[in-house]
Amino acid sequence: MATQTEHVAASPVPEAITSRAAKPRRTLSLAWIWPYLFILPFLLVFVTFFVAPFVYDIIQSFYAEKHAGGLGLSPPKVVWVGLDNYVQALHDPGLWDGFWRVFVFGIVQIPVMMVLALLIALLMDSVVIRFRSFFRLAAFVPYAVPGVVAAILWGFFYTPGISPISQAFRSAQLTPPDFLGPSTILWSIANISTWVYLGYNMLIFFAAMQAIPQELYEAARIDGLTEVGIARHIKIPMIFPAMRLGLLFSIIGSIQLFNEPRILENISGAINEHFTPNIFAYNIAYIQSNYYYGGAIAALIGFITFVFSFAFMTLTQGKKRG
């Protein structure tokens, strides 16, 4: 391997270009086409299965189905309504209620998950050496559990009459907690999200820490830094790019929270049709088959996700430099 790398490094690149440049001029003239061939397959599926549906969705958001008075028992007409759907969505308390809920969710769930992930990664990087492979796999397994299975699973854990947790409480003569009530349901959902994604984030952090050059630690030890000091002054700053990315995905995931509340809504009266913005969009656009209003809501969710992501990226950019 050493020789191979050497060979590459030793290639006298500029010279080679000059020596070969004269001959294949003709073929080079078509070289511009290569990058496009590389992106063509992606572009095809991107245009067919993202751009086209997305544009279609946006176009629909400017229309609505209307009856011309009476009992409405004949087919409606699809009419241009301009920005009406957007105006309606912006005035819909349901949408803002949903945004507020995912905001509260994100403010609590993301830090808790990230701190736990960081703590585990730090422990595995310095203290807990034995059984590391086992811990790593155990943490990552929930990520591999299909969403529907996770929902069925936690559904059983949260249903008071059949939950093993409630069983344990009852056998200890205690009142079991109500996981599905209006004040607890959001945190029951946060628990599922944390369970699924904590290991994923932890692994990213851990992998980033393992990539920190050894020399930095040696220098730090010479400076008399403790393990905690090394964690604070070297490890955490060094894995900041990885954390930033993990945070960004978590923010997007929170705003678009959907799967867990949708499947738990069967067993919890506290999950209403606008519980999260995405649940709201799904109920309007699919369950109520109002593709027009639903299109406007989806576009707004996309826009607000963009604003938050952009704000986050800008804010953390400054921090990184500072």
């Binding site: 559904g155 059983f156 249903t159 919890s268 506290a270």
Partner: peptide, 13 residues
């Protein structure tokens, strides 16, 4: 209790 509502596992049980 919503989890004991018609057709839910709690209700079946």
């Amino acid at each position: 209790t919503a989890a004991d509502g018609d057709f839910q596992p709690g209700w079946n049980a």
